[in-house]
């Protein structure tokens, strides 16, 4: 699972193109630019925020993508609601929150990886005690 995330980043790019193609087929009478705008917004709000969080699970890419859409919806909707009540206009929170959520998830994941990384003892890798519960 070591290279799972970088690999999935390629798939993420592929899934963006796939979504674009799907929407192009479904909305065949629409201008491509309008579909591109929607697809980009969809990725920003419904994929990016929770995508890293889904690395709690060992699941395939499409399943990861699907659950990250639902989780992102919850995180973004709730985040924008509360920030709105605190006086932050939705036009700012919709830009800010995906960065906050994904940065926070990435930070937690990196810290967890560091904590559970195999330690080198006399040139040999020794797994950490809780290695079987790896985030990857």
């Amino acid at each position: 699972m070591k290279n799972k995330l970088p690999t999935d980043l390629y798939y993420l790019a592929g899934s963006f193109i796939t979504l674009l193609v799907i929407l192009r087929i479904v909305f065949i009478n629409e201008d491509l630019f309008a579909i591109l705008k929607f697809s980009s917004s969809f990725f920003w709000i419904f994929v990016i925020p929770a995508f890293i969080m889904t690395y709690l699970y060992k699941i395939n890419f499409i399943e990861r993508f699907a659950i990250s859409v639902v989780l992102s919806a919850a995180l973004m909707g709730i985040g924008m609601y509360y920030l709105g009540l605190m006086g932050v206009h939705i036009k700012y929170s919709v830009m800010l929150l995906p960065i906050v959520y994904s940065s926070f998830s990435a930070l937690v994941m990196v810290l967890y990886r560091v904590k559970t990384a195999p330690k080198k003892v006399m040139g040999l890798s020794v797994p950490a005690p809780n290695q079987q519960r790896s985030l990857a």
Binding site: K37, S41, I90, V94
Partner: peptide, 10 residues
């Protein structure tokens, strides 16, 4: 909030 967000971005 979600549809308002998409509306603003797209």
């Amino acid at each position: 909030h979600l549809s308002a967000g998409v509306s603003l971005l797209a």
